[in-house]
Design a protein around this nucleic acid. Structure first.
Lengths: 214, 214, 214, 214
DNA sequence: AATGAATGAGGGTTCATTCAT
DNA sequence: TATGAATGAACCCTCATTCAT
């Protein structure tokens, strides 16, 4: 009998339950008021049990962040590489925001972690989750832009690197903004924001085609 | 005798000193580790005295936020209204970012407050400080764009309202991002970020002129 | 009115009361079971109040140790330096043990601290309290022995340094032993132990006179 | 079938492994930080298994102490009783210290236990391990001294009992001191200490011969 | 026999806040 | 007005120990 594997499975499930509860708590109360005791109460287990699964409260937050980053990995399959690069760019941009709207709570969590960790002393090489996330797509876009340039679809005056930094920067900023919005406010504004994401795409296309000057 | 006024003045000065110290603490340690006892120690007064000036730590944060918003009010004097509206728009945009770079710490504070207050129960009508700040300039830009439109300087297809929402939204997102960057990273990237702010301006102009399509 | 001084006085008194209670607790239960909560309960104050007076439980132990070392400083006045050096040596030895017997609880505390701190990581330069105490008298004895040697009262073959190391080493060992004895056992054996201290003195004199060989 | 005996053997081996690990832990961290969970982790077994072998952590310490006392039993074979008693005394003394230096870690453990158990409520008849150890050799030395006295090798004025108490007392004190030294300090001082043990022997001989007076 | 899971108890510490002067 | 003193509440975490399998 494969007892060990069985236990491990249960354990994983339990870890996930804990992370789910932590997620809800953080979304409701923010990182500041997130604490292990309340989490244990909410899960109806003892704090000690929590400590068997996670080293401490920061460990929980980090595991949650990691889980989000893993689930959230931009899937690039489905983007047939022989299409027009700019069309692909648009598709990708739209898919990105579709994802953001669909999983706004994850974005919120990442944004809250980021603000929370801002002043904590952290290993130097560690990046904010947002930038980890962003760099995952950067590579894909890079090849896209290079291809577009080789096909003369975008302005000569554009440096691929600069363009990417600019586009990613604005996108990350806008996405963070979406994540940090108040839930109510977001619901009210959802349609407007979607329209603005589309406008942003237009702007980027305009930028790529013209290099940013008329 | 206006002894009362004199005391009130002293009191104001004291309040300001407290807010200064609070600002430094929050910038160094984040909202999480900001606490009244440490603040009192830093100011070399008793906590009780602090309580005479502010109800509690949240009250201090709010007062600080308010002080920033007041100081930060975009000064619109100096923008002669008979210039070309688009030139004025550019001037204004540049002045805005110049201000942001010069007072990044205030932006940081507003961004930290925003994340901190996100889940606190708050009076419904109260907006995030960023949006308060944004709306202060909105009115000015609105008249500018209307004028530009009447002079046929910008595309017919543009709705002034939409354009403003879009532009302000992106700007606020970008500015918040600048505020939340960590200090070291900011120093390294400062020049790049300034360049991107300028690119953004170019794009906005392009957007206004073309309506977002080439 | 000299309020500050008054408060400081009260404060010192309170610190002393706390140290007294800590001393009793440690003597009764040993260092292992010494803890702040119980101490607070015993003093009938809240733990928080304790923290206002001492940084943490180790701080209390160190303060207690320091207090002992200060009180315990071997008083060398009263030893007229023109007497026969070996007589003085005997007087000093006897005074030392008289002190040990009279303040055995202090010795016990020092011995308990020493064993407790043995595996704690500590600043390298820090010495065990016993050795601090011992070195305080070493200087006095050194001059004594040199004088004795110059008066041909002790064997030529003796190196003052070696002799002191030897004598101090055995004394500290014996004193520590006295401190670590069980209270009951000590009471039963007290007279015997006193006799042995006297025998030890004889041994030392013998050693000094003969150099340790017949 | 003597399956039972076989299992018992396994069990004993297991107990020994546990005690070995406990010994290492205690030497490294002291009695205070010695705890069952860490011990189990170190042995890579569950705490529950530990409880099958020992009642609790004090039980482990006592078993360890007992094991040391058994192993450490002074072997008196090899001391041919027809030699000169004082020579035998010297040999014995040297063998004792040789043993202490060779097995200093055991001495350390006994000294740590002694301090640790000092305030624990214990069965009245139980003595400190050191005294158990000391009394084991006392009997042997007693016969030796009596023989020496009957051969007029030592002073008439000496009471065998007193002399033994004195000698054993100083030895135990010195040995405990050696055990409690911290490892680094011991390494630095090892040679000096050995010299002092030899000096002590000389003094004891002198003491026995002269009765403590020149 | 061995182990994963779970927990009560309790120590360490910090924080906001009140009281008395 | 200002402050020293004091504390309740709450969080963090570890340990010994038991239960069910």
């Amino acid at each position: 009998m494969d007892k060990t594997a069985y236990f491990e499975q249960i354990r994983q499930k339990r870890r996930n339950d804990i992370l789910d509860a932590a997620r809800d708590m953080i979304l409701q109360q923010g990182m500041n008021d997130f604490n292990i005791q309340q989490l244990a109460r909410k899960l109806d287990i003892s704090t000690v049990t929590l400590y068997k699964y996670f080293k401490n409260s920061e460990d929980i937050a980090l595991a949650l962040q990691e889980r989000i980053l893993e689930t959230q990995k931009p899937s690039l399959s489905g983007f047939a590489s022989d299409d027009n690069p700019l069309t692909l760019f648009s598709d990708f941009h739209r898919a990105l925001y579709r994802n953001v709207f669909k999983n706004r709570e994850r974005v919120t969590l990442l944004a809250l972690f980021e603000a929370y960790l801002r002043n904590k002393p952290r290993p130097a090489e560690e990046q904010s989750a947002f930038w980890t996330y962003a760099s995952q797509m950067r590579h894909f876009l890079e090849r896209l832009l290079e291809k577009a340039q080789s096909q003369n679809l975008i302005s000569d005056s554009i440096s691929t690197d600069d363009a990417l930094d600019f586009i990613m920067g604005i996108n990350v900023a806008f996405i963070r903004q979406i994540g940090l919005m108040d839930d109510e406010h977001f619901k009210l504004e959802e349609e407007n924001i979607k329209r603005r994401a589309e406008q942003l795409l237009n702007l980027f296309i305009l930028y790529l085609k013209t290099g940013g000057t008329v």
